[in-house]
């Protein structure tokens, strides 16, 4: 057979899945490892049967429920990742809470969590042609030149949102944002390359505004 490592992995997954199936057939409630193995193995076989991706993914949410596992186990399977061989080759499947949900969770647009202590409010308009996302710790003054806002007012500020969140500016849209001061030693390096030094040094803002105007940053 000249089995590849990936194929040996598949056999191990099958063995664990088969053990789980037999135990289930004896009426046992499954452990975390058994539940994961059974679901992952069944997905691989459904792909082998030639079923399409969406159907296999949906199947993953119907195989086991909380009633099939030991008490508390459903919370122990927040996600299963497994690769299966579909007719168009290997494909990654990702299931979220497959013992709790009965269908794949649908993504949605989530609003940022604005810090109410934000000291500055600004309207920002995306005058470019593509989506622009600005993250929590970026020096807003140096955000894309296609964004039009009062750059001077955004000097030394970052978005007053939770770490890891983004504010998305769709083309032609105007979004009202809150800003909070950058902390620490207030030394901005990198970012858009307009400051690249201490924020509070005399003349720094004016120098950066000049550079921004020179480079075509809107609102500078």
């Amino acid at each position: 057979m000249r089995l590849l490592p990936r194929e040996q992995d598949r056999l191990e997954l099958f063995l664990a899945g088969e053990l789980a199936r037999r135990r289930r057939a004896r009426g046992l409630l499954l452990s975390q490892a058994e539940a994961v193995a059974l679901i992952a193995d069944e997905l691989c076989e459904a792909a082998r049967d030639g079923r399409p991706y969406a159907e296999v993914q949906a199947l993953g949410y119907t195989l086991l429920t909380e009633d099939d596992v030991l008490d508390g186990v459903s919370a122990l399977v927040p996600r299963i990742e497994v690769e299966a061989l579909f007719d168009d080759g290997m494909r990654l499947l990702v299931l979220h809470e497959p013992l709790v949900l009965d269908a794949p969770p649908q993504p949605s647009v989530v609003s940022p969590t604005w810090d109410t202590d934000g000291v500055t409010e600004l309207d920002v308009t995306n005058e470019g042609e593509v989506l622009i996302a600005v993250t929590s710790h970026f020096h807003v003054f140096e955000a894309s030149r296609d964004l039009r806002f009062d750059r001077s007012a955004a000097w030394g500020m970052r978005l007053a949102i939770r770490a890891g969140e983004k504010v998305v500016f769709a083309p032609e849209a105007t979004v009202s944002v809150r800003l909070r001061p950058i902390g620490g030693a207030r030394l901005v390096r990198g970012h858009g390359g307009l400051c690249d030094g201490p924020l509070d040094e005399q003349g720094a803002r004016e120098r950066a505004l000049g550079l921004a105007r020179e480079r075509g940053y809107r609102g500078a």
Binding site: S136, G164, G183, G190, H191
Partner: peptide, 22 residues
């Protein structure tokens, strides 16, 4: 807190943000 370090796309663990540029 507000300065939580987060890896990933758009996270805070980037040069000049949560990572000192130097």
């Amino acid at each position: 807190g507000p300065d939580e370090l987060l890896p990933g796309w758009g996270g805070t663990m980037r040069d000049g943000l949560g990572v000192r540029a130097g």
